[in-house]
Each structure stands twice: as structure tokens, then as C-alpha cells.
Computed example of a mutant assay.
Amino acid sequence: MNITIRPAILPDCPRLLELIRELAEYERALHEVEVSLNHFEESGFGESPVWWAFVAETDGMIVGFALYYIRYSTWKGKRLYLEDIVVTKEYRGLGIGKKLFDAVLADAKRKNLNGVLWQVLDWNEPAINFYRKYSPSFNQEWITCSIEKI
């Protein structure tokens, strides 16, 4: 199987949203996906994009993606935040996630960023085991907080 990793383009957005819903269902939170296609497209490909992504493609079909943005830490400077990395169920275990993650790491290095951050659910053992291969630090000291619909 030939897998191509490339930057996402605007016509990829409907498929990316399908994969986002697949991930949300896996994470038992499908009801929380509220983003519209229009908002998603504008946020990634409008006048002021706030996210970028790599897609994994085989035979003209997108089977995975890694979506990220740049955040700023007052302690560390500019860092890449990996929002989601998804490989559709039928294509897991084939090294596609590694290719996507490596593309993200290479982009962070190319952009001279000071690190890469992400979150993983504490019950998602397959994802935790995947990330362990990269020897990250797992910080259980910080608690994620959010305010919805301000």
C-alpha cells in the first residue's frame, strides 16, 4: 500500500470532518462536535488561518490526518499544538499515524518552534502506547480547563 503524506487543501475539509466525527465517536463524545463545514473551511483556509493539517492518502482516499496550530507559551515561546491525529479504523496499525506524527514534528522543526504539545485521554491506551515510542513527558500535574460558548 502506497501512503502519501501531504498538506491538507480546502477540498479535503469534508473528509476531515468525517474523520473528526469518527474520532469523536471513538472518544464517546460525538454529541460535542458542533463545527460546521463552512466554519471549519474558513478557519483553515480563510484570510487568517488558525489551523494547518497533514493528510494521509492512499488510492485518492484520505485515511488519516494530523491537525495542529501554533500556540505561545510565556515560558517557552512558540510551540506547535497537535489538536488531533486520526487514522480511520480500517487503516490503523499500518504505520500511518507514525508518518503523520513525523510530518508534524518535521514541520515544527522547520518552523523553528520550541516544542510540540498534545493531549491524550487517560483511558486511550493505544494512543498512549503510540506516543510512548517518542519518549514524551506525560504531565499529570496540569488540569485542562475550558469555558464553552462565551
Rank of each mutant, 00 (worst) to 15 (best):
L82G: 09
Y26M: 05
G46L: 12
V33T: 14
G44S: 11
I5R: 10
T88I: 01
F45N: 15
I147M: 10
T4Q: 13
L67F: 08
L37C: 07
V86Y: 03
M1W: 09
I9C: 08
T74R: 10
I70T: 12
L105Y: 04
N124D: 14
Y91C: 02
E41T: 13
I85N: 03
E148G: 06
Q140D: 13
V33W: 15
S137H: 12
W75G: 02
A53V: 04
N38G: 07
W51R: 08
L94W: 11
E42C: 07
G46I: 09
I9Y: 02
N124F: 04
P7S: 12
L82D: 01
G60C: 08
N2T: 13
S48F: 03
D102E: 14
P126S: 11
T4D: 14
Y81R: 02
A106D: 15
A8S: 08
V35I: 09
H31Y: 12
E41P: 04
I85G: 04
Y69P: 01
N114M: 13
L19R: 04
S135V: 00
L23Y: 11
A127E: 06
K109W: 06
Y81I: 07
S137K: 14
G44T: 07
V33N: 15
G60H: 00
E27L: 03
W142D: 09
W75C: 00
I143P: 03
G77T: 11
